[in-house]
Structures are given as C-alpha cells and as structure tokens.
C-alpha cells in the first residue's frame, strides 16, 4: 500500500523481527541488577536485568510490556551490550542517544548492526521516548553500579 512508504521508515523489517521474536526476553537466574523503568505518558514499562562480572556485562535480559518500538529496542540493546565493559556500554548508550536526536555519531567504534534500523524513529518525535526506554534503564543500572 502507498501509505507504507513513510511508515516503513519507522517499522523496518528488522525492528518487527525483534518485536515478534524478542532476544533476551525473560529472567536472569541468580543475582542480577533489576532496573524498572516506565514511560509514564504511555504506560510502557520494562524491567531490565543485568549481570555484571569484572566490570563487564555478562548477561542482559528484560521483561515488560510496550509497543513495537520500545520492545524491539530493548531486544536490540540487550544483544548489543552483552559482553561489553560498563564504560563501553555507557558509550554505546551515548551514541544511541545522539542517533535518536538526529545528531552525528561515531558509527565505527561499535558494531551497531540492527540498532541502526531505529534511525527512522527520529522522524517520529512522539516515539523517540519509546526507543530510548531500555537504554535509559541500562544507564541507570550501570550508574548505580558504578556509584557503589
């Protein structure tokens, strides 16, 4: 359908794939950081679970409810940060935030892969908060971990 051209920049196939088949959805067994984050204006909420060993994210999972953009972004984020050091994970978050604001970002330091499919969200300002929800949760968890 013709209406799709614009929408398709938002709902890229790879995003819908993460929405339909979310990676890392579920609970981490044993000790892990649990970070609850919601988007009060729309009711989306996720709980991110992070396992940190030796300054590295050894596991990342999430549970929650939300739209296709927030859940697919959570799925991609958990894939991307797994195995990263806390510093690198926070830097990725910064890169993602720049991407969402339509600013220039360093696309070479990390293999962003699927995440770049979310670039289309910048054209839908009302949905940016959906895309950044999981990343904000990750930042919050790591900042608290670093403050310990």
């Amino acid at each position: 359908m013709s209406l799709h051209s614009n929408l398709d920049t938002l709902y890229r196939q790879v995003i819908m794939d993460h929405y339909k088949n979310p990676r890392n959805r579920g609970d981490i067994e044993g000790d892990a950081l649990h970070i609850n984050m919601n988007n009060p204006t729309c009711g989306d909420r996720i709980q991110l679970q992070l396992k940190v060993d030796d300054n590295k994210i050894s596991d990342a999972k999430f549970v929650g409810e939300g739209c296709s953009i927030s859940l697919s972004s959570a799925s991609m984020m958990t894939e991307a940060v797994k195995g990263q050091t806390l510093e690198d994970a926070l830097e990725m978050s910064d890169i993602f935030s720049k991407m969402m604001q339509g600013q220039d970002y360093d696309d070479e330091k990390f293999e962003l892969g699927d995440i770049e499919a979310l670039q289309g969200v910048t054209k839908f300002p009302a949905r940016i908060k959906c895309a950044t929800l999981a990343w904000k949760a990750m930042e919050k968890g790591l900042n608290e971990e670093e403050d310990k």
Binding site: L3, L7, C42, G43, D44, C67, S68, I69, A126
Partner: peptide, 21 residues
C-alpha cells in the same frame, strides 16, 4: 497491535487519536 503503533499508523493517515493510559 500496541495502541502506540495503532496511533502512529492512524496519524500517518491524518487521524489524531489518543494512545496510552
């Protein structure tokens, strides 16, 4: 279909509805 996604598709057709709680 999450209501946000529905509202975004409707908006692409010029239709303004509320989505959320």
């Amino acid at each position: 279909v999450h209501p946000h996604d529905a509202a975004t598709v409707l908006d692409s057709e010029g239709i303004a509805v509320r989505a959320g709680h």
